[in-house]
């Protein structure tokens, strides 16, 4: 069944989009990530213009992170204060990102920049996760006790000024890295159409030493607002948010997420992380190949006079 997307201005198949949403929802439920980093490249592979894929991806991320954050709010595993500071940084980063987005679009380098960012980030995160999870799998097979995270261990981040206390996270830390992290995620959110959970979660755990149980809820909480802000700014400055497209993806996504979460419970942590790492790497490699392989057409058209 075909449907005409009013903003993307092309006809697409409803079932392909629902299936895409469901598949990404399944994976996001299984691994506890927003799925924005999969949705945007998939939409681009499906010939949706990258500018629309990014803005609509940000819109879709709101649905999955809102649903996830609600569960964490009920369980009390959400640090509002930490989320709020991250968010303040996020707004600044997102504003800068939107500006860069419009500039790159005018220069005709947006697609390349989006692909390069995806390859670099997904390649790095996927690679690190794969190494870590394979080591953990090997360690558990050889019967060695898993290495516990040393609590109370301080790094350079803890020597920065302007310290603030975050009770729910049992944390006393400078606001500078928190604001900076928020800004970086906001920037990526507006340029890549991702929530940024796949960077936020490891950064909170390893850099700020936030307890793992509050990390996901807090990350999801701030992602709701960063992506909402990104969606709003893309809608007003670039008019690239396609609600029909976003809704089809969300509808498939919320259903898929539940089955994914169920499937995820049957797998062990290291196995899950190894699978996620391979998935992330696969997307990175697919995008990297496109950068280096001679494209079937060297020429591309775009409307002139975009402000």
């Amino acid at each position: 069944m075909g449907i005409y997307l009013p903003i993307a201005e092309i006809s697409v198949n409803v079932f392909v989009l629902l299936a895409m949403g469901a598949a990404v929802g399944f994976l996001s439920g299984m691994f506890g990530v927003g799925g924005g980093f999969l949705i945007t490249p998939l939409l681009i592979f499906y010939n949706i213009p990258p500018a629309i894929a990014v803005a609509t991806g940000a819109n879709q991320v709101i649905a999955s992170s809102f649903s996830g954050a609600l569960s964490h709010f009920k369980r009390g595993t959400l640090d509002f204060k930490l989320g709020g500071v991250l968010l303040a940084g996020g707004i600044v980063g997102s504003t800068a990102g939107i500006y860069v987005f419009a500039l790159l679009r005018r220069l005709g380098q947006l697609d390349l920049f989006i692909s390069l960012l995806y390859v670099a980030l997904l390649g790095t995160v996927g690679g690190l996760m794969l190494v870590e999870s394979v080591n953990a799998l090997r360690a558990s097979r050889s019967g060695a006790a898993p290495v516990l995270k040393k609590s109370g261990q301080h790094n350079w981040i803890h020597r920065l000024p302007f310290k603030m206390r975050f009770r729910a996270s049992k944390l006393f830390v400078s606001v500078i890295p928190v604001l900076g992290l928020g800004a970086a995620i906001g920037f990526l959110s507006s340029i890549m159409g991702v929530g940024g959970g796949f960077i936020m979660v490891p950064a909170l755990i390893y850099l700020l030493k936030v307890p793992t149980n509050v990390v996901i809820g807090t990350s999801l909480f701030q992602i709701i607002f960063t992506s909402a802000y990104t969606t709003l700014v893309h809608a007003t400055t670039n008019q690239t948010v396609d609600v029909i497209l976003a809704f089809l993806l969300m509808a498939g996504g919320v259903a898929g997420a539940q089955y994914g979460a169920k499937a995820g419970q049957r797998l062990r942590g290291e196995q899950l992380r190894a699978l996620l790492a391979m998935l992330v790497l696969a997307v990175a490699i697919r995008l990297a190949v496109d950068l280096f392989v001679t494209p079937p057409n060297l020429y591309s058209l775009s409307a002139a006079g975009l402000n």
Partner: peptide
């Protein structure tokens, strides 16, 4: 989307939140 882009953006966000909330309500497993 072009003439009332701000309202359109607000609508897109509300729709996403509503879908997320309904999705949790309908498919909740916890």
């Amino acid at each position: 989307a072009h003439d009332y882009s701000f309202l359109y953006g607000v609508f897109a966000i509300s729709l996403a939140m509503l879908t997320g909330w309904l999705g949790r309500l309908i498919f909740r497993k916890d």
